[in-house]
Design a protein around this nucleic acid. Sequence first.
DNA 1: TTAATCCATAACCATCGGGATATGGATTCG
DNA 2: CGAATCCATATCCCGATGGTTATGGATTAA
Lengths: 107, 107
Amino acid sequence: MIETRDLLFKALSDPTRRALFERLCESGEQSVGALTAPAGISQPAVSKHLAVLRQAGLVQDRQQGRQAYYSARPAALAPLVDWTERMARFWDARFDDLDDVLKRMDQ
Amino acid sequence: MIETRDLLFKALSDPTRRALFERLCESGEQSVGALTAPAGISQPAVSKHLAVLRQAGLVQDRQQGRQAYYSARPAALAPLVDWTERMARFWDARFDDLDDVLKRMDQ
DNA sequence: TTAATCCATAACCATCGGGATATGGATTCG
DNA sequence: CGAATCCATATCCCGATGGTTATGGATTAA
């Protein structure tokens, strides 16, 4: 789906969400409370951001008692990597074409 | 600067802007008129998107007569690649730690 | 010179998005 | 059981954003 890519870029476009994701990548699984403390925003705001990240597949959650533990799923970044590589490949291909042209001009 | 990364993610968060960037990567330098035709939005809207992409360093423009030719600068994607790699590295590092723990547990 | 073309900017509008507070269900603690 | 804690959801507010039309400067064509 192309929509996956859209969800991914949208989810990562907000610095607060990136910070949450970074924290989960760095420090592993965290409860919402643990994530809220250093975030500098309210708990409901954190919950909303986590919901967006989850919808993009970037995090997963696990219920334990009355706490929700979130963890990162960096594999979800794959479509982003694919896209950047594709863009770079287009670029390289066009330079290859240019090389071909130049080689032909040499002859 | 951290702000560079922000401009980058923000610029790429809009599908129309990504489409413009993709087109420039695929087909090379294009005038604003050429970009507007298939974009499905007005010319001023395209100009605004191009301004955002330019501020993020993703495109550059060149004036020739009354036309403005835009081209992609895929190298500007580097901070995005760096960031994703860093996230993946955190992830791997934590698994390495886990490996250490497991190895110690084996002994 | 006059008319037409190309593009950026200005002004405006509707929607989206991120923030807050209020609330309530589920769980744990006393 | 009653009180406190954890978190998600609902609601609201406001600034950001993406779209439009209007306009004008610069350049090219007639």
